[in-house]
């Protein structure tokens, strides 16, 4: 079982359907560790969320497993306490749009760091919950401002971003409080990159896993480009889409692209080898 559900679902089907996990106390949460973590040494921290610096890459290069493991554990501990994510499907994101208010779109910190995108081209990140009112009240303190959305508008934006190829992830701000409904991709998202490039679980896999039905798949390959997690490829000999179940994050983007309905999402909990593979 997902440890976040174990700790924070409180009877709801998934922890991110529990409205209590959006009710952040504004007078309490401070991310001191992240603020103190030297921007000069790691400018990505200023715009993205990589908690790993060059020392990690050097340890990797000299194959110093012990040092890598230590840094990985430290990064995960900080991240799980303050700011980590989990992949969710479009369906789950649309449900969140109904239980959570307010929701706003705003500038995406990762893409700002990766590409220097100006705010006008960069409103792909969504914020949720009472924290958003601070952004409205003090626009000069919070760069770029926010654009509030009705639940219906939020659903439209989410659907559009999904079409564009972006994966939905929820992010905590002071766990378990969820404040981000992020729309991400490889190579632009710091969270996806930290997980895929280095195996550090600042981003958790989702509650489902995609499977291809070989009877229904006609080998059209329309789904292949949708995967941001390197789980989906094309198997020429079988002439079918191929999904690596271990690598799949359960985002569901591939399934939405398939007009044969050949890809289905099954519960992670129904697959013994994957139950704990977050």
């Amino acid at each position: 079982m997902c440890v976040w559900c174990e700790r924070y679902a409180d009877g709801y089907e998934r922890w991110y359907f529990n409205p209590a996990n959006y009710a952040r106390r504004l007078y309490k949460i401070r991310k001191e560790e992240v603020e103190a973590a030297g921007a000069e040494a790691n400018p990505q921290a200023a715009g993205g969320m990589s908690l790993l610096g060059r020392d990690f890459l050097e340890a990797k290069e000299r194959n110093d497993i012990e040092a890598m493991e230590r840094m990985r554990r430290e990064a995960e501990e900080i991240s799980w306490r303050t700011h980590f994510g989990q992949v969710i499907t479009l369906d789950d994101a649309l449900k969140i749009a109904d239980i959570m208010y307010p929701i706003a779109v705003m500038t995406c910190a990762c893409r700002r760091s990766m590409q220097g995108l100006p705010d006008e081209e960069n409103f792909t990140c969504m914020g949720m919950g009472p924290g958003m009112y601070k952004w409205e009240r003090w626009p000069d303190t919070y760069r770029g401002g926010v654009q509030f959305l009705t639940p219906e508008e939020a659903k439209e934006v989410l659907t559009k971003l999904n079409k564009r190829g972006l994966v939905h992830c929820i992010y905590t701000f002071g766990t378990p409080y969820i404040g981000g409904l992020c729309n991400c991709d490889y190579p632009d998202c710091g969270g996806i990159r930290t997980r895929i490039d280095h195996g550090v679980r600042v981003l958790w896999k989702g509650h489902q896993v995609a499977q291809v039905d070989p009877e229904l798949c006609n080998g059209c390959a329309a789904c292949i480009h949708r995967c941001q997690f390197r789980a989906l490829s094309f198997a020429p000999t079988r002439n079918k889409a191929y999904i690596d179940p271990i690598q799949c994050f359960g985002c569901g983007l591939c399934a939405l692209e398939c007009d044969q309905e050949a890809i289905t999402l099954v519960e992670r909990s129904s697959l013994p080898a994957l139950v704990e593979a977050w």
Partner: peptide
Amino acid sequence: FGLGTNVGPQKFREI
């Protein structure tokens, strides 16, 4: 490359 600031990771402030 990454774009950051030399005044700390104040990621959502106007700088």
